[in-house]
């Protein structure tokens, strides 16, 4: 029972990271029907920037502040220099362009830091465990859950309560309409793309102390983000949240029962959802 609860909490932690990873992907899809195969690379580079900052300064908090901004800037730079020229193309060409970008980022990382992964240690203030009665839980994991939940609330607030958020939501309902209202839709998209990258980078920062940084975590993360987005429904904030939690908990609980089966199951779930309910749990009809 205690083990189950432990795994459940781990799954929750994983789930909120998956949420941060996927929310940008789902919203950029909603806005311009754009699928970004380089999205996982933002997560990976986020973890590497964390590694660099932590090994230079020894300060994880600095990484938590700076790395997401670096990734957000990187995302906007890529959007302006390459990605935006593919908006007019068919889906399949957008996929190929972003696939090329992902491949370049991955190889660049290997050129700089080598193919072997790097370890990142959690900040010393979050080393150790929390004890609640008999139940013990690592402090850092507890922090990840709390911090990500906070970010999720901020993102929700940003989407629901700000003018920018209203535009993003309206744009994902009907981009043409918003364009007609005199809003610069490509600019809106660039910013959203950058913020999506920023959040994926943040997910990478939070994941770094848990799983280290390695060049192939981007591909893995892209797969996970696709599963989350498909299960939750493309374009839906709530879908990314629920999808992230479902996938995180499922993986975590399964990993103590049948580790190889965990990944098998989530991909089977993804295929089943696309086939039976292509709009996912919360996708637009």
């Amino acid at each position: 029972m205690e083990l189950f609860f432990f795994q459940l909490l781990n799954g929750l932690g994983l789930g909120v990271i998956y949420f941060l990873l996927s929310v940008g992907l789902t919203i950029t899809f909603g806005l311009l029907n754009f699928v970004n195969f380089a999205h996982g690379a933002f997560y990976m580079v986020g973890a590497y920037v964390t590694f660099v900052i932590v090994s230079l300064t020894g300060n994880f908090w600095l990484a938590l502040l700076i790395a997401p901004l670096v990734i957000g800037t990187l995302a906007i730079a890529l959007e302006q220099s390459v990605v935006k020229f593919s908006y007019v193309l068919e889906h399949k060409y957008q996929i190929l362009v972003t696939l090329g970008v992902a491949l370049m980022l991955q190889e660049l990382v290997i050129m700089i830091w080598g193919p072997i992964g790097k370890n990142v240690s959690p900040p010393s203030s979050l080393a150790g465990i929390i004890e609640i009665g008999d139940f013990i839980y690592p402090k850092y994991r507890a922090f990840v859950i709390a911090f990500s939940a906070l970010i999720a609330i901020v993102v929700w607030w940003g989407l629901e309560k700000t003018k920018f958020g209203a535009l993003v939501r309206a744009g994902s309902e009907n981009a043409q309409m918003v364009g007609l209202l005199g809003v610069n839709i490509t600019r809106l998209f660039s910013i959203t793309f950058g913020l999506g990258g920023l959040l994926a980078g943040l997910a990478g920062v939070l994941a770094a102390p848990l799983r280290g940084a390695d060049p192939f975590m981007g591909v893995e993360a892209l797969g996970i983000a696709f599963i989350v987005v498909v299960i939750g429904g493309m374009g839906s904030f709530l879908g990314a949240l629920v999808g992230g939690l479902v996938v995180g908990v499922m993986q975590s609980v399964m990993s103590s029962v049948w580790p190889e089966g965990a990944s098998l199951m989530v991909y089977a779930a993804m295929a089943a959802v696309i086939l039976s309910r292509p709009r996912g749990l919360f996708g637009r009809a």
Binding site: I95, V230, L275
Partner: peptide, 27 residues
């Protein structure tokens, strides 16, 4: 199975099937 969906959903299905094939082979 895959052609029951179009566009990006078709692509994602083929991607999911490849991952399934990988994990089945691994298992």
């Amino acid at each position: 199975l895959a052609i029951r969906r179009q566009g990006i959903y078709f692509v994602m299905l083929t991607l999911a099937f490849t991952q399934l094939a990988f994990f089945v082979s691994y298992t």
